[in-house]
Amino acid sequence: MTQYAFYFNGKRCTGCKTCELACKDRYDLTPEISYRKVFEYGGGDWTKDADGFYVPDVFTYYVSVACNHCDDPACTKVCPTGAMHKDADGGLVLVDADRCIGCGYCHMACPYNAPKVDREKGHTVKCDGCAERVAAGQKPICVEACPLRALDFGTKEEMEQAHGDSQVADIAPLPQKEYTHPNLYVDPCKHAQMANEATGKVANILEVM
């Protein structure tokens, strides 16, 4: 079975959000709904040294995340109608809009905050890996848009081959990979903290809600 996966190069990402807005443009999303989000994660503090100078020990990094089309998705498990499902061929997590009742359980269950209920449409909406573009031989719009060339998408095997040093996403502010086994490969930047021993916090909550 083919399983599609995203790749994110944390060493390249500058937090520019082009991925998020390119997706919004392509799918005509409102300000409230983003299929892809960019988290600003950081921490540290300032202390006074012996001579009275404030010195910093701070860090910041960015993580761009959409739906990770997990092997063990939290959203499908809680869906009461079966609308949220894993596509049999590409392993993409998709919403059957006609079956979705807009209850929002998927939104609450997903540790990546990927599905959202669009109240105007009356059902859940989310990243589908730009399935149509991929079918036409293109990369998802976020991947093609990235000015830093920090994103990629393809089959799991292709991602493992093209980005050999990467690892399954296990960095803060994302949850530990064991929860849902995301199909997201990450090259962590030097500041990146492991999900289970993180000390920072998301610094842009209002942007990623």
Binding site: A88, G90, D96, D98
Partner: peptide
């Protein structure tokens, strides 16, 4: 999907 009663048929997505 409704007609198929579950997962979307692969061909319809990538055909």
């Amino acid at each position: 999907a409704v007609a198929g009663g579950g997962a979307v048929a692969a061909d319809s997505l990538f055909g």
